[in-house]
Computed example of a mutant assay.
Amino acid sequence: MNKVYLDNNATTMIDPEAYEAMLPFLGENFGNPNSLHSYGNATHAALGRAMDQLYAGIGAKDSDDIVVTSCATESNNWVLKGVYFDILKEQKNGKNRIIVSSVEHPAVGATAAFLESLGVEVTRLDVDHNGLVSPQALKSVIGDDVALVSVMNANNETGVIFDIKSMAEIAHAYGALFHTDAVQAVGKIPVNVAESNVDFLSFSAHKFHGPKGVGGLYIKNSRELTPLLHGGEHMGGRRSGTLNVAGIVAMGKALENSVKFLDFERSQVRRLRDKLEDAILEMSDTYVVGDRQVRVPNTILASIKGVEGEAMLWDLNQAGIAASTGSACASESLESNPIMEAIGADAELAHTALRLSLSRFTTEAEIDYAIEVIKKATNRLRAISSSFSYAPSWHKSGL
């Protein structure tokens, strides 16, 4: 049976070079980098090189901080909760509100809801039918009472890219900080923190062919931010916990290689994505969320009318194809896709969501096979559907 992995927005295979780079630190070079003996010192050169790769990979300056975390979920929590303790709790300068988009990853969305339970006012920005949050929408609700705006760089389900540079400018004009969850952007499109002028940026290694269990938080100009984890002087006292040397080294190499392959992402990965997307749209009553020109090159969120997302996943899995109905962090839930609901799809349509996400390791033969299987599965599932009826104009007229 063929095996095809089209769930790269959930996690990616590790880059072979990143894998090789981490192996020495899982074996003979096992020392704690904070130890003063030779075992600890043996890790320092590789750690320094990895940190240089991270700074270069997102365009950070020497005056900035990149703090290594366990994942972007930790980074996101740290920003929102740090701003709570630094500003919101005491309502400094009258600031007691944060703004987030309605389609943030739960690592931001659930943390915002937690702050709301502590008395923080949370404003949620709606998206349009293409899944976009506009800078104008932010401008219409922001005020001097806002401490933080958090809007993702690219959506984890649709791949839609948000104009974070414009939104950061708006936030700063009102004295607010700006954070972006860039998990689905780093390694797929150019990310430059100096150009976008964000104050905080979260990323996670396993989304750009690094290992799981390691990520980072960019902090502009090394500004103060109350730590999420206390206990030691690691990472300059900003984030306690013995460093994951192997993970950091692999993350640095994975990011360096991902940046090298950005042109390949723009050309070849996009070409294969578009080929798969075109094949889906050739079928009747299908829809893909978001203009492909404003999406990261690898992502499709499609709806195939009359086909439950979970049923499609079953057929795909039986054929050796990995995909999803949305965020892996919510994959155990059989509720309708929240992004589909956010763009205005009805409940029935929201249950048909199918997310397909490629990587630079995806081949043309795999896409050809996936197209064949998806078409066969669609025909089979529609044939046994009690609700599907042929309506050839559906996918052209929108939701």
Rank of each mutant, 00 (worst) to 15 (best):
A302W: 04
G398W: 10
V151P: 11
L118V: 14
G213F: 04
D285G: 14
I339H: 01
S63V: 11
S387G: 01
A168V: 04
Q268L: 13
A72V: 05
G320S: 15
S204L: 06
D86M: 09
V83W: 00
M13E: 02
I367Q: 09
F114Y: 13
R273K: 01
S385E: 10
A383L: 10
V122Y: 08
N29Q: 11
N298C: 08
L272I: 07
G82R: 01
L381Y: 05
S393K: 07
S284T: 12
D7H: 13
E308P: 14
E308G: 15
S38W: 14
E366S: 15
A60C: 04
S117T: 06
K305G: 04
Q268K: 10
R273M: 03
V288W: 09
H105M: 10
E332T: 13
F261I: 14
C329M: 15
A254F: 11
V151N: 00
G57C: 09
S101M: 06
E20P: 02
I170K: 03
A45K: 07
R295K: 07
G40F: 00
I14K: 06
D128N: 09
A347G: 00
D144W: 12
N9Q: 13
G48F: 14
D315I: 01
W394D: 06
S267L: 12
R360G: 00
A45R: 01
A72M: 10
S331C: 08
S117F: 04
R292L: 05
E28C: 02
A147N: 08
K89W: 08
G59M: 05
N257G: 09
I161C: 06
A328D: 11
K95Q: 07
A350C: 13
P392G: 13
G31E: 05
R239F: 06
A112F: 14
M235A: 02
A107Q: 11
I280H: 04
P33F: 00
I219E: 03
G237L: 12
Q91I: 10
I58N: 00
E169P: 01
P392W: 07
F162H: 11
A10P: 05
K260S: 13
F361N: 14
L6P: 01
M312G: 02
V127R: 05
M1L: 06
A377P: 15
L399Y: 03
T180H: 03
